[in-house]
Amino acid sequence: MVMIKHLPTDSAVQREIHGETAEWSLTDHLLAATVDHLAVANWMFQCVNTGEDDETPDPPKPVPRPGVTDEDGEEQGEGSTPEGATEAVSPSALARFFG
C-alpha cells in the first residue's frame, strides 16, 4: 500500500483513482488561481473606471479545472469553456487533492 500511495501523480494508478485531477500539479492549480485573480482585478478596475451611463462588464470566467462542474452539471475538461464555474480552488480542496 505504501508503494501505491507514493506513486507519481502522473501514473496510471493515480489517474484511475483521481481521474483528470491527477494530471494537475500544485503549480498548475496556483497558476490557474493567479490567472483568475488577475482577471478579477482587471474586471474590478474596468468597473470602477467606466462612466455612469456605461454598462457594467460581465465578470470574468475562471480557468476550467479538472473535477469542477459548471452550473449545467457538466464536468469541465481541458478543451471545454470555463462557463459556469464561480469559485476558485479552496485551500481545503488543495489539501484533500494532495492528501
Rank of each mutant, 00 (worst) to 15 (best):
T56R: 13
W24E: 01
E78K: 11
R65N: 03
T50G: 10
M44R: 09
A41L: 15
S90D: 02
R96T: 12
A41R: 05
I17L: 09
D53A: 10
E83G: 11
L30Q: 14
A95Y: 02
E23D: 13
E55W: 01
P66S: 04
T34D: 15
R15T: 01
K61A: 14
T86E: 04
C47Y: 04
G51I: 08
F45W: 11
R96C: 02
E87M: 12
H18D: 11
T86V: 05
V35D: 10
A85Q: 14
L30M: 15
I17H: 05
G67M: 01
F45R: 07
E71Q: 12
I17S: 01
T81D: 15
N49R: 03
V40A: 04
E75R: 07
D28L: 00
G67W: 05
T69G: 04
A22I: 05
G67S: 04
A32W: 03
F45N: 14
P66L: 06
T50V: 12
C47G: 04
M44D: 12
W43G: 03
Q46Y: 00
G79K: 06
L30P: 08
P66A: 07
S90T: 07
D53Y: 07
A95E: 03
T50L: 13
L30E: 14
L26N: 08
N42C: 12
G84E: 03
R65I: 05
M44V: 13
E52N: 11
D53N: 10
P82K: 06
N49W: 00
S80H: 04
S92R: 11
E16W: 14
E23T: 13
T69S: 14
E71G: 07
P59E: 10
V48W: 09
D72T: 13
A85F: 00
P91E: 00
G67E: 06
P57H: 07
M44H: 11
I17V: 05
D58E: 15
H18Y: 15
G19T: 05
L94D: 06
G67F: 01
P82F: 05
T86L: 04
V63K: 12
I17N: 03
P66R: 00
Q76V: 02
L38E: 14
K61W: 13
P91T: 01
L26M: 14
E52S: 12
G51Y: 07
V89M: 09
P62D: 07
P62Q: 11
E20F: 03
P82E: 05
G19P: 06
G73L: 02
T81I: 11
V63Q: 14
W24V: 00
D53P: 01
E16N: 08
E75F: 01
A39R: 04
G51M: 04
I17C: 03
G73I: 00
E20C: 08
P66V: 02
S25C: 03
P57V: 07
P82R: 10
M44Y: 12
A95C: 09
E23K: 14
L31R: 15
E83D: 14
T50H: 11
G79H: 13
R65Y: 04
K61V: 15
P57R: 01
P64T: 03
R96W: 10
S80M: 07
V40L: 02
R15Y: 09
T69Y: 13
G51D: 09
R65S: 08
W24F: 04
D70W: 06
